[in-house]
Write a protein that binds this DNA or RNA. Sequence first.
DNA 1: TTGTATGCGTTATCAA
DNA 2: TTGATAACGCATACAA
Lengths: 357, 357
Amino acid sequence: MSRRASVYPASDPPSAGVARAASLADVAKLAGVSAGTVSRSLYRPQMISGATRERVQDAVDRLGYLANGAARALTMRRTMTVGAVVPRFGSSSFPALVQSLETRMSAQGYTLLLSAPDQRGPNAASVLRALLERGVDAVALLGVEQPASVLNLLHAHAVPYVLMWAPPNAEGRCIGFDEPRASRLLVEHLHGLGHRNVAYIGAPGADSERARRRFNDLTRAMAACGMRLCNDGFIEIDHGFGEGFTAMRAILPHRAQYSAVICSSDYLAAGALAALDQAGIAVPGELSVASFNDNEFAAFVHPPLTTVRLPIRELGEQAANYLLAYLRDEPLAPPTALPVHLQIRASTGPTRPGATA
Amino acid sequence: MSRRASVYPASDPPSAGVARAASLADVAKLAGVSAGTVSRSLYRPQMISGATRERVQDAVDRLGYLANGAARALTMRRTMTVGAVVPRFGSSSFPALVQSLETRMSAQGYTLLLSAPDQRGPNAASVLRALLERGVDAVALLGVEQPASVLNLLHAHAVPYVLMWAPPNAEGRCIGFDEPRASRLLVEHLHGLGHRNVAYIGAPGADSERARRRFNDLTRAMAACGMRLCNDGFIEIDHGFGEGFTAMRAILPHRAQYSAVICSSDYLAAGALAALDQAGIAVPGELSVASFNDNEFAAFVHPPLTTVRLPIRELGEQAANYLLAYLRDEPLAPPTALPVHLQIRASTGPTRPGATA
DNA sequence: TTGTATGCGTTATCAA
DNA sequence: TTGATAACGCATACAA
C-alpha cells in the first residue's frame, strides 16, 4: 500500500479573509455566558433555561454564527457526510440513482460527497482515500468490481459501505436488482412470441462486470429454453442513443439470422428503434425489440417495445436505508435483490403512419 | 477479487470497533520521531532527511495511516471541498453539468459536496447552511433566482461562489450562455424559412426564472422580425420526454395557427417529434421543429431538427475555473456568456420511409 | 442550570 | 533537520 497521495497542495494559503468567522466563544462573549452553555443551548436546548437560551439565540443571530464542522467533527468523530463513488456518472441512469440516494440521506441530515472518477482502476483507491480523509461516515459505491485495494481500505478503516447495483455476495453489503430474473423475463417473453434466434446489443463486457453478468444471464436463460444468440448479431457498444442507432445499423445486414433484438438499456433500444424506423422495418411486425429499461423513455416514444424495468430510484433508497441503519447501529435488514417487472407496452398509435397509408 | 483479505469477519460491525484510527502520533511513535516530523515528512518532504522520510513512510504504510481531514481543516482553515447546489438534479442536462464540474475540481484535489434539494424541500438557505457548516471552500449554485437569504449567507461568510446558468449581473460571479443570442438564432432561422407564426413548448415560467427569460428572449426576437407567438400554441410543461409528447398533442388541434414549433429542450423536442411522427405529420415538410438543445440527442434520432447547442460541459468547466481562480487568489477573468451555435441537421435518411414508398 | 477544563488530530512557530 | 508546544473550535465530563 504505497501512499503519498496527498490531496492537499502544500502551497497557497486560503483566501486571505481578515475577519475570522464567529466562533462559539464569540457568541458566548456577546451573550455573556460560557462557550459550553452556547453549545448546549444550541444542541441540547432542554438543558438550558429559557432566558439564557434566548440571549444565546440572539447573539447567534446577530453574529450569523455557523458551527465549524471541522471542529465538531474532531470532537464528535462524525461528519454527517457520506461519500458516493459513481464512475461514468454523467451517463445513463446513474444521475437518477444519485438523486434518490441524496434525497434520502439529506432527509436525515447527511450531505453527499460525490466522486465521479472517469476511469476505473488503480485510481479507484485514491478516490476513496480522498473521501475517507474528508471523514465520510459511510460510503456508497457503484458497481461490483471493486479492486481489492478499495475493499481493503474500507475494511481497514472500518467504514460502513454499500455496493450499489451489485449482486448479493458473501459479505452482504450489496444491493442490486434481480438481474437473472430480468434476463429470464425478457427471454421467455420473446420465446413465447415464437422467437428462437436473437441479436443482442449491450455494453462492453471488458469494461464492466455488470455487462458480463448480464450477457451470461441472457445466454443462460436462452439456453434453458432452446434459444440461441446469433453470432453476427452480437454487438458490444457503449451506452447511448447514437450508439444504439449505430449498432442496429451494423447488425442489420445479418437480419436473416435473427427475428428479435435485445438491448441492454433503453437508450440503446431507442437508438436501435430509430435505426429500424429509418430502415423501414416494422416493429414488432418484422422484428421484435426488447430491452432492459432504467429510464422509462424508449418505451414511451416507441411503444411496441417490451422492457424489464429496473427500479433505479428504489435502489438509491435502499442503499441509503442500509447505510442509515448502519450509522444508527440498528440491526441490518439483509439486503435483497430488488424485484424487476416485465412491461409490455402496446402501441399508442401508428409508429410509421405513412406505411399504413 | 480476493475478499478474504479482510481482517474483519463479515458479521463484525465496524462501528463496534474500539480501536481508533491511527493518528499522526501513532505513526510518530512507531517511526521513533515526533508528530511534527511525520506531518512535514508527508507534506513537506523536502524539509526532511531521506532516512527519516523512509522510516516515516514505512510506519505510515504499516498502520494504514490516513490523515484526519477534520483536524487538518481546523488548523488549515480549508477543507479542499466545494459545495454544489443543483435543484432538480436528476432531470435534464444537470447531470452533465455536475459531471464536468466535478471532473475539473477533482483534478485540483477538490471534492464535491452535492446538494440536490427538490423544490419544496427545506428552503435554499438551510441547504446552503449545511454546506457552509461542513466547511466548503467555495460553492457553485445552479440558477439565477437565489433568494436574498442565500446571497446574504454567501456574503456574510465571505465564501467564494459562482452562479451557474445565470445571466451576467452587476455582481459578476455568474456564468451562463448567451441565451438572447440563442433565441435570436432560432427565430431568425425559422424566419429565413418563411415561418411567421410559431408555437412554443417550454418549461413553466412560474417555477423558473430561466424559463421566463427564455420566453422573453424568444418573444423579443420574434417581434424584431415581425413574427409572432401563436396564442393557442403556447404550452408550459415540465422538462421531459413524455411531456414533450403530451404537449405536442395538446397543441396539435390548433395547427392551423402555426407553421413551426420551438421547444425549450431537446427532451421536449424529441417527445414532440414523436407525437408528430405518430400523427403522420412530416417534419419539416408540413411543420418545422426547432429546439434549444443541451444533450444532443433529439437531433440524433430525428435529424430534421434545428437546434441551438448550449455548451453544458463548458459551463461546468468555466464554473470550476472561476472558483479555482478565486481559491488561488488569482485575478478573476470576468466571466462572459458562453457562445452558442446553430446546428442544422439534414436528414440522414427517410424519417418515415413508408411515406416515400 | 451553568462554568471550567480537557482532548480531538493536525499544522505552525519557535528553539535546539 | 528535528522536537516541543501552542493554537484551531467544539463537545463533554466534571464541578459548582
